[in-house]
Design a protein around this nucleic acid. Structure first.
Lengths: 237, 237
DNA sequence: CATTTTAAATTGGTTAACCAGATTGGTTTG
DNA sequence: CAAACCAATCTGGTTAACCAATTTAAAATG
């Protein structure tokens, strides 16, 4: 129950094997993009794996926009050119699980942007939602309770207000990794949490009065302290 | 074959219904994070859907780090707090498909960062890979062929050199959307493509001599022109 | 011979039965 | 009474059969 990786690992190896096989198929049997892949049954037979495994691999490539299964018709290769598909699949196969540092680095990058965009684009309802998240955070802190989740929701509310659905999606994707790592590293101490209340307030006010530069700077300050706390190093943006 | 959304739409509705059901389950039956979800069989019966649908929904929530299926044991709720889970699931349910503008905006944000980081962290093999991608692009352009894919691979090579696996993953995720939209909008004309050769070269040189600020500026220039071309508006970074 | 019809084969999706490992609760054993 | 054991049960994963829509090519029709 603690080892969360092992059971999925062989599965991932099988998946990567299938994905590599599909890549070879596209290269070797020169299946043109836009064409159909062999049926799931044939692939499962060809690669010596279950059809479920083939479907999972296809789903993964569908997530990256490379394949598109069409019911009762076939699975089509995205029409984005054989070179791009090759490069992307290679990258996907080599992708390593993100480390904590790259997660934090990316989060800061995204959040500085969402702060700026939120200040520019926030609607009244956005503002209301951010305020609610902020109040919830303060309430927990003042009660002496752990407020990691509320902190997170405050930041997600800002991401939503940024009006950029792509960034919002990306924030959601990296969020769980952030949380689990934060809890693992015991990042937030008492002082941090209290201080963050004030910082959050300032970020909120900057977004409220639509001062994008100020919002970015306040967010940067917020993370600057966090970053130093994590790494004993100054944040470079 | 052209309508790529319809067949998947009902599926998405079913999935969201299941995800919402799981959310209610966590809230209403107050399943604590860290605990087990009801079995897939029970969920499929409870929601009146197929077990496959339940599995797909679980996979989606697994992708966002909310659930963790353990073989022969059960599907566990991530130990990140009920509030965070609620907020995240709500966001996931409301997520809309990213629009072109948010894709471009996000891509520029990420690429400015990768350029800077690549300049700082690039290894010799990174450099070699970027050079190869650059040459491949130039070759295609000089032959008068379409080089959208090669352009993409050049940028992905830089992302890889950034040494930030999270950003690299995010780049991969947004890439297919970028490509298809670019081809749909016929963004790149002859002049752009020729000009980009020079811009790429300058980006490469900046990364080579590890001048991070220069790399960022050159990348910014590269996108600045592209952005104006797309929107007849000046890029704000 | 071209066009339409139609029926057989193929497709991704769904369902149900099955598997091996994990869990659980009662029973045995020291 | 506590610890060890064991079998019944439950789990996610896998397999195979099935479904309805689609594609195909052969057959019927003008």
């Amino acid at each position: 129950m603690k080892l969360e990786i092992l059971t999925k690992t062989d599965n991932k190896e099988v998946q990567n094997k299938i994905i590599a096989g599909i890549k070879d198929l596209i290269n070797f049997k020169n299946l043109e993009p836009g064409e159909k892949l062999p049926s799931e049954r044939k692939l499962s037979e060809k690669f010596g794996v279950s059809r479920s495994n083939v479907r999972e691999a296809i789903q993964k490539l569908e997530f990256y926009g490379i394949l598109k299964p069409m019911p009762q018709s076939g699975t089509f290769i995205a029409n984005i050119g054989i070179t791009a598909i090759n490069g992307m699949i290679e990258d996907i196969l080599e992708l390593e699980d993100p480390d904590f540092k790259s997660l934090v680095e990316t989060r800061i990058l995204l959040e500085l942007k969402t702060a700026r965009l939120a200040a520019i684009r926030r609607t009244e309802s956005d503002l209301k939602r951010i305020r609610q998240a902020l109040d919830a955070y303060n309430k927990m802190v003042l009660e002496g309770k752990d407020a990691v989740q509320e902190d997170l929701l405050f930041h997600l509310a800002i991401a939503k207000a940024s009006g950029n659905s792509t960034i919002e999606t990306l924030m959601l994707i990296i969020t769980p990794g952030i949380i689990t790592n934060f809890e693992k590293h015991h990042v937030c101490d008492e002082n941090q949490v209290i201080l963050a209340m004030q910082e959050h307030e300032e970020i909120y006010e900057a977004i409220e009065k639509q001062d994008s530069q100020l919002a970015k700077n306040k967010m940067k300050l917020h993370f600057d302290i966090l970053y130093q706390y994590c790494y004993n190093a100054k944040l470079v943006t």
